[in-house]
């Protein structure tokens, strides 16, 4: 088969997807979570008593039993690393300095995890079970987004 080295030389039609952007709704429980994060610097979860599960971020329903959840609990800013991975180069192969450390943060046995970044720590020092705390942006910079948390850092 002939190898096509210049796709523009064969008959074709150029096209593009016409949606210019999406408006992603955070949802009813998301409103509570991101408002509390922005205004009060708190991380809220929602507790299902019958299943013994706490969801972070909170939800309006329990996915196990479908109960309506309206009890919001303050989970504090401290958790521990349940798993992590380290990126040292970006997708174009350029070095990342410092390397980016992504981690799953656990807030307790019966609580779902939060995906975030680790900071103020060398990659070699990270371990599963490491106790960490959230470092928030100053209130005036917070926008009600997951990036209002800068990263989690080890508790000294």
């Amino acid at each position: 088969m002939e190898k096509i080295s210049k796709p523009t030389e064969i008959k074709h039609q150029l096209g593009h997807m016409e949606v210019d952007h999406y408006h992603y709704t955070v949802g009813l429980a998301g409103e509570r979570f991101f408002t509390a994060l922005r205004e009060e610097g708190k991380l809220l979860g929602a507790r299902c008593e019958s299943c013994g599960v706490t969801y972070i971020p909170p939800r309006i329903y329990c996915e196990e039993c479908f109960a309506e959840l309206d009890e919001y609990v303050d989970l504090g800013l401290e958790g521990e690393v349940r798993s992590f991975t380290i990126a040292r180069i970006d997708r174009d192969g350029r070095p990342l300095d410092p390397p980016e450390i992504r981690a799953l943060i656990s807030f307790g046995e019966d609580t779902t995890d939060l995906l975030h970044l680790l900071g103020e720590v060398e990659p070699e020092e990270v371990y599963i079970g490491m106790e960490v705390e959230a470092v928030l942006k100053p209130k005036r910079e917070r926008e009600g987004k997951v990036t209002d948390i800068r990263y989690f850092r080890p508790i000294k």
Binding site: H23, T25, G27, L28, A29, E31, I60, Y61, F66, E68
Partner: peptide
């Protein structure tokens, strides 16, 4: 136009009623 709810939240509302 349900700007407040996520798709998941809409699913749950309908599914709960049916159950």
């Amino acid at each position: 136009s349900r700007m407040m709810e996520t798709g998941k939240e809409l699913c749950w509302e309908a599914a709960k009623q049916a159950l």
